[in-house]
């Protein structure tokens, strides 16, 4: 093949059971969304792993930068009062 045109990369998300969320399963190449969905069925759900598939072209995914992850997520670090265990309440207290 002299033509160097690649099929774009797609990220695949699969809902394994009705009632659960779609989870990232992996990626694959396909010429368009329809073929990506069909390929995803063959590659990622050969053993009934899914009841619904999402595909999105990888280039449309925006992500946090791992080098800045520490400072980016830092604001949550010192707010332990957001957790129920922060509050010291009497043992006699029930149903709370």
């Amino acid at each position: 093949m002299d033509q160097k045109k690649e099929e774009p990369l797609w990220e695949v998300f699969i809902r394994s059971r009705q009632g659960l969320e779609h989870k990232h399963a992996g990626s694959l190449h396909a010429a368009d969304a329809q073929m990506a969905i069909e390929n995803a069925r063959d590659v990622y759900t050969r053993r009934m792993e899914g009841v619904s598939i999402w595909v999105v072209e990888s280039k449309y995914i925006h992500a946090t930068n791992p080098d800045e992850a520490e400072s980016f997520f830092e604001p949550a670090n010192d707010k332990i009062y957001r957790h129920p265990t922060f509050y010291d309440l009497p043992d006699e207290l029930k149903y709370m």
């Binding site: 033509q3 045109k5 099929e7 396909a30 010429a31 368009d32 073929m35």
Partner: peptide
């Protein structure tokens, strides 16, 4: 097949 898939995708688009 690969070529046809790409052309088909472009046409659909």
């Amino acid at each position: 097949v690969r070529e046809a898939a790409l052309v088909f995708a472009a046409k659909q688009k």
